[in-house]
Amino acid sequence: MITTIVIVVFVILVVAYFMGRDEEEAPDEKVNSSPQKIPAKPKQVFEVVKIDNPTLSIPESESIPDQEVESYSDENTTYNVSVSEMTCTCPDFKKHRKGVPVNDPRRACKHLYCVLEENNLLSNLSELALAILESPSKNKKLTTVKLSSGNEVSICHGGNEWVDVFTRKRRKGDSGGLYSGKYDRFGFNINEQRWSYGDGPPGAREIKSILSQVL
């Protein structure tokens, strides 16, 4: 009886020993398997929907006589401003704005803007046109697009590495990507692919995608 028990125990130990060796020699699938690469998420490309640029439409301009406006930097210098022709004799106009279309808000230098404001000729302008007029860009081209949210954005480009983007700011309570705040100007550096001071506008990802297609 004792002999039988010893034999049984011996057999169990031998079987257990060889089973353990098989497990040790079996390849570890988790260790040897090559890690799966997660495919990079493709960048979302937004559709560019171009619309008409905002205009500097002033029907009463013919009735405004030419005026002499004092220089902001030299009190002994004055410039001749013609609202009917949308011209000014200042260096800024001659260098940057003379070639801009007459009905383009970027054509107005600060002296033209001053005369327009004094004669109450700005009330009929759209918010976007007024924003460009109040913060004029020296870039040569103007492209206006409509975002998927419905917001209108004007892009002034073609002068240097900085692009001026005019779009609405976010107002408290805005939802769904449709922003209702005041129009403001945001700078974007084409070479460095960054917003000025790190301050991007609402909808910055869509605007950046559009910039890459427009510029």
Results as ranks from 00 to 15, higher is better:
Glu47Tyr: 06
Glu47Cys: 03
Glu47Met: 02
Val48Lys: 12
Val48Asp: 11
Val48Gly: 08
Val48Phe: 10
Val49His: 07
Val49Ile: 03
Val49Phe: 09
Val49Asp: 09
Lys50Trp: 05
Lys50Met: 15
Lys50Thr: 13
Lys50Pro: 13
Ile51Trp: 13
Ile51Val: 14
Asp52Asn: 10
Asp52Pro: 04
Asn53Cys: 07
Asn53Trp: 02
Asn53Glu: 13
Asn53Gln: 09
Pro54Leu: 05
Pro54Arg: 10
Thr55Trp: 10
Thr55Ser: 08
Leu56Val: 08
Leu56Trp: 06
Ser57Thr: 11
Ser57His: 15
Ser57Cys: 12
Pro59Ile: 00
Pro59Ala: 02
Pro59Arg: 06
Pro59Tyr: 01
Glu60Ile: 05
Glu60Arg: 11
Ser61Thr: 04
Ser61Leu: 11
Ser61Phe: 01
Ser61Cys: 09
Ser61Lys: 09
Glu62Gly: 10
Glu62Val: 03
Glu62Met: 09
Glu62Thr: 07
Ser63Ile: 11
Ser63Cys: 14
Ser63Thr: 12
Ser63Arg: 15
Ile64Trp: 00
Ile64Ser: 00
Ile64Gly: 00
Ile64Leu: 06
Ile64Cys: 01
Pro65Arg: 00
Asp66Trp: 03
Gln67Asn: 00
Glu68Ile: 06
Glu68Asn: 14
Glu68His: 13
Glu68Leu: 13
Val69Arg: 13
Val69Asp: 13
Val69His: 03
Val69Asn: 06
Val69Gln: 10
Val69Cys: 12
Glu70Tyr: 12
Glu70Gln: 11
Ser71Tyr: 10
Ser71Glu: 07
Ser71Leu: 11
Tyr72Leu: 14
Tyr72Ser: 15
Tyr72Met: 15
Tyr72Lys: 15
Asp74Gly: 01
Asp74Met: 05
Glu75Leu: 13
Glu75Ala: 12
Thr77Cys: 15
Thr77Met: 09
Tyr79Thr: 03
Tyr79Gln: 04
Tyr79Ile: 02
Asn80Leu: 15
Asn80Phe: 12
Asn80Ser: 14
Ser82Gly: 04
Ser82Ile: 01
Ser82Phe: 15
Ser82Gln: 05
Ser82Tyr: 05
Ser82Arg: 06
Val83Gln: 15
Val83Met: 15
Val83Tyr: 05
Val83Pro: 14
Ser84Met: 14
Ser84Phe: 06
Ser84Ile: 01
Ser84Lys: 08
Glu85Met: 14
Glu85His: 11
Glu85Phe: 12
Met86Ser: 03
Met86Cys: 03
Met86Thr: 01
Met86Lys: 10
Met86Gly: 00
Met86Glu: 08
Met86Arg: 11
Thr87Cys: 07
Thr87Ser: 05
Cys88Trp: 02
Thr89Gln: 03
Cys90Trp: 08
Cys90Leu: 15
Pro91Gly: 03
Pro91Phe: 05
Pro91Ser: 05
Pro91Glu: 00
Asp92Phe: 05
Asp92Thr: 08
Asp92Tyr: 08
Asp92Met: 11
Asp92Pro: 07
Asp92Ile: 03
Phe93Glu: 01
Phe93Val: 01
Phe93Ala: 00
Phe93Gln: 03
Phe93Cys: 06
Lys94Tyr: 00
Lys94Arg: 04
Lys94Trp: 02
Lys95Glu: 13
Lys95Gly: 02
Lys95Ala: 10
Lys95Asp: 10
Lys95Cys: 04
Lys95Asn: 04
Lys95Trp: 09
His96Ile: 07
His96Ala: 06
His96Pro: 02
His96Phe: 13
His96Trp: 13
His96Gln: 06
Arg97Glu: 04
Arg97Cys: 00
